Structures are given as C-alpha cells and as structure tokens.
Computed example of a mutant assay.
Amino acid sequence: MMNLADLTTPYLLLDPDKMRANIARLQSHMADLNVPLRPHVKTAKSVDIVRRLFPTGSGPITVSTLKEAEYFGAHGFDDMTYAVGISPDKLPRVARLIRSGVRLSVLLDSKAQAEAVVAFAKRDNLALPVLIEIDCDGERAGLRQGDGKIVEIARILHENKQFMGILMHAGGSYHCPDKAAKEAAAEHERETAVAVRDELLAAGLPCDVVSVGSTPTAHFAKDLTGVTEVRAGVYVFHDLVMAGIHVCKLEDIAISVVATVIGHRPDKGWIMTDAGWMALSRDRGTAKQEVDQGYGLVCAMDGTPYTDLIVTNTSQEHGVLSIRKGSKAKLPKLEVGSKVRILPNHACATASQFDGYVVPDGDDLVYWPRINGW
C-alpha cells in the first residue's frame, strides 16, 4: 500500500467520486433530451477513464489526434470521429485504422481537402466517411451557414458515397458567464446545425449526422431537436474555466496537481513550490473572467481552497503562490515540505503535462496511464 505522502511531486491527482458525478450529470441531461453523447476523449486520454463512460459498451467517441484513435482502437473502441480538419499526409494512418475495423469519420471544410480524400479513397478502395465542419460563432475553423461551398463539397463527397453529415463546435460558449447566455449559445448552435442540414436536404443531399457540442452548450441545451449527437470532453473533470462561467462548482473539479512547498520569499509575499508551468501548463484561461485564478487555485490536501491563494507566476519547475491582488487575506503557514493541491485552469492542458493519474482507490492508490502526442 502507498499513500499520497510517499509520492514524488508534482503529480496529477484524480478524485474518482467527483469524476463519476460529473459523468452521470451530463449523461442524465442527454438522456432527458433523448440525444446520444459522443464523448471527446482528448481530455482524459486514458482507457481506464473512458471505459467508465461506457459501462456496457465501447463508444462512440471523439478524438483529437490519430494517436488517440490508434490507442483507443487497440483497446476495442471502434466508432470514432476525428474532429480536427484532415490533412492529406494523415490519410494513410486513417486507412490503417479503418482496415483494422475502426469506423473512423474525418472532418474537413474545403474543396481541396474533399478532393484529396476522394482521390485517396478511390486509389485505396477505401470506405472513408466524412463530415463537413461548420462554424457557428466565428471561433474556429469551418464554413458559415449559407456558404455555397457547403453544398458543393457535400456533393463531391456524396457522389463518392463518403458524405455523412456536419459537425460544429460552439467555442463562443466559453465566454458566456450567465445562464441565459449559455442557453442562447446552445440554441444558436442547434439552430445553425439544423439550418445547414435543411440547406443540404433541399439540394438533394442526405445529411445523416448532425453533430454539435461543447461542454457549456451540452449542459445548458434545452432543446436538441434535429441534432443526432452531442460531443463534450472537459466535463469529465471540469476546471477553473468551467467554474468561472458557472458550468460547474469549484468542488466539482476532479483533478488537481499536487505540489510541495520548497521555499519562501517573505520580502515578496511568496511561497515557492515545485510545480511550475511544466506541471500546470501555461494556460491562463481565467485571465479574462470575472475572477482571475492565475495559473491555478491553491487548496489544502483535503481539497479546501485557501482564501485567495493562487499561483501567480511560474517558471519551468517553480510555482509562485501568493495572495490574489486586492485581497486582504493572509498567506497561510505552509512550511517547507508541506503539500498543496492546485486546481487547473484548463484540465486538458494540465493533464497533458503528465503520463497518468494517481487515483485513490479505497485505502490504496492506483495509477491510470494516459497517452500524449500525435
């Protein structure tokens, strides 16, 4: 048996009870709306976690890298959407996955990509399903509703029996702090998707897949009529960005970085730890929110946040803890060797700094590996 005090810091701690509650919350909401969930595994990147999303099955899932697709394919997941625009050089890896038995859909938003995919599929005699990416809010890649290229590209793909449907991500929902704004973002995402589907149907083109999703819109959608699936990923853990826009509470955040106090700078009001940006990442996703959490919110080992104590600066292996600017709180007494937990701004970015999760399991600890890279 090991205990947390035996482990070398920094390490990534996962609270399985909080994770299970987060999973159950969104699954229940999707069940109420009668729409299947295609979880985005880019946050967890661990089969030990993703299996807990499917207690009686193995998918469907969304991936962000082909390495994820290969990893999850090797563990029996055989229905995937690769939700990053396809580049022609990756098509041979896609082909190998499909030939191994994985149903892998790819994503694109240009005629050049469509023609490259069609040519490759013909040359390799390959059934390669394709989704067209739609931009619903100006936040990322994709074609806007009403753009004639949507029908043109869909027709190229349909004539070669490759067109499956459309996919979009409401990235703008990450800037919606109040409930009404998140609900409006979810409805706008749905309305855009349905309008594009109707344009395709009017042009005589089938559109079997209407895929939408982001963690905020998934949680705040009130109506998903016309949508065939929802994608979300960070909901499994949540993070300070999600807490900052009131998708979750601080106590819902399931992962934290455990760090050790290694020194003090009383002249500057600093406590130094061994968790710098190599552990926490450089993500500053809360910087423009109502409450700026620096590089992470500092908690005691029982998960209780210290009043206004945040990671205000980082270098590669050093983290600087200090009191939030403007606060009248006092630095806690944390001696050298003390352990703290740091809640992450962006769960995906912070988790990617580690090779796996330390998970309390009753009186023992287990280690769940994860993959990184492309």
Rank of each mutant, 00 (worst) to 15 (best):
M2K: 14
T8S: 14
R20A: 15
A21I: 03
A31P: 01
N34I: 09
H40P: 10
K42M: 12
P55R: 02
G59H: 09
S64N: 11
K67H: 14
Y71G: 04
G76L: 07
D78P: 01
D79M: 05
T81I: 15
I86A: 13
S87P: 01
S87M: 10
D89W: 01
V94I: 09
A95C: 08
R96P: 04
R99P: 05
S105G: 00
S110N: 13
Q113I: 02
V117F: 08
D124S: 05
A127R: 12
A141M: 07
L143Y: 06
L143E: 09
Q145F: 03
E152K: 03
R155E: 10
E159D: 15
E159W: 00
I166H: 03
L167C: 14
Y174N: 07
C176F: 00
P177L: 07
A180H: 08
K182T: 02
E189Y: 04
V194D: 05
A195P: 02
V196N: 02
P206Q: 09
C207Y: 04
D208S: 12
G213I: 03
T215Q: 01
A218N: 07
H219E: 12
F220P: 00
A221Y: 04
T225C: 06
G226E: 01
V230N: 12
V236N: 11
V236D: 08
F237D: 12
M242F: 01
K249S: 14
D252H: 07
V261G: 04
K268Y: 10
W270E: 13
W270I: 07
M272A: 03
W277I: 06
M278A: 05
L280N: 07
E290G: 01
Y295V: 05
Y295I: 06
V298P: 04
C299V: 08
A300E: 14
D308L: 06
T312L: 01
T312H: 12
E317H: 11
E317S: 08
S322Q: 14
I323G: 08
V336C: 09
G337E: 13
V340N: 10
R341C: 14
L343G: 00
T350V: 13
A351M: 11
S352D: 13
F354S: 14
G356H: 00
P360M: 12
P360Q: 09
G362C: 04
G362Q: 04
D363V: 08
L365I: 13
W368K: 09
W368Q: 11
I371S: 07
G373P: 11
